[in-house]
């Protein structure tokens, strides 16, 4: 099962629900990896939906596992791309030329959901009007609060900043504007005293 229920945390920490059909004029899905399962589930509930949908999908490390299934769904427009940044200009262009009544669905890892949410907010969709469902890896997109560098798919705590090399404590403090959680130097008080990294949520 690709669902994980995050334990309750501070208010800043995003929460997720299951994707649900909603009235609309057109539908846009952005998903990565196991996020495809959420689309497949929704499509099996509401068959007509996919013919009005545009799906932007990034398989990440799942290979062809889901792309073959997605191709069978009669999706009006299906784009499969290698990474979020490769898909981003397509997403932005789609949002700018979209009209009110568009329903946006995000599914997959937190990094994907957060970045697509940020692009959608810039395009004028209130973040509370976007449906998002977490699936797959619990790895998260972290920003080092010291050097501001982003490290993707962090699933251990503490982790080493891929930019400045500091050991960072993984916080639940989240920024929608940065689409990242905050990582804070763990040995600032006592340089060198770095606990061994543990897997998140283990």
């Amino acid at each position: 099962m690709s669902n994980f229920s995050f334990p309750e945390s501070i208010k800043s920490r995003p929460t997720y629900a299951r994707l649900e059909p909603r009235a609309g004029k057109s539908y846009l899905f952005v998903a990565d990896a196991e996020g495809a399962e959420a689309i497949i589930d929704l499509a099996s509930n509401d068959k007509s939906l996919m013919s009005k949908s545009h799906v932007i999908y990034i398989p990440k490390n799942t290979g062809k596992k889901y792309t073959l299934q997605l191709e069978k769904l009669n999706i009006n427009q299906l784009y499969i791309g290698p990474s979020y940044s490769a898909a981003q200009s397509r997403l932005r262009h789609t949002l700018v030329s979209s009209h009110m009544g568009l329903q946006l669905y995000l599914s997959g890892t937190e990094g994907l959901i957060g970045q697509a949410q940020r692009d959608a907010m810039v395009a004028g969709i209130p973040h509370t009007a976007i449906q998002s469902e977490h699936r797959g890896s619990i790895g998260r997109r972290m920003q080092c609060v010291h050097c501001k560098g982003i490290t993707e798919d962090v699933d251990i705590d503490p982790y080493v900043c891929s930019h400045c090399g500091l050991s960072l404590f993984v916080r639940d403090h989240y920024s929608r504007r940065l689409a990242a959680f905050q990582g804070v130097c763990i040995d600032a008080e006592e340089p060198g005293n770095i606990p061994t990294a543990v897997e998140l949520y283990k």
Partner: peptide, 28 residues
Amino acid sequence: PLGTHLYICGPKGMIDWAVGQAVNLGWP
């Protein structure tokens, strides 16, 4: 266009009608 906000001021019937239409068309 995406990002449009709707503002309605008038008699109750008009508000109900406009809000209802917008919600049916998928406006959040």
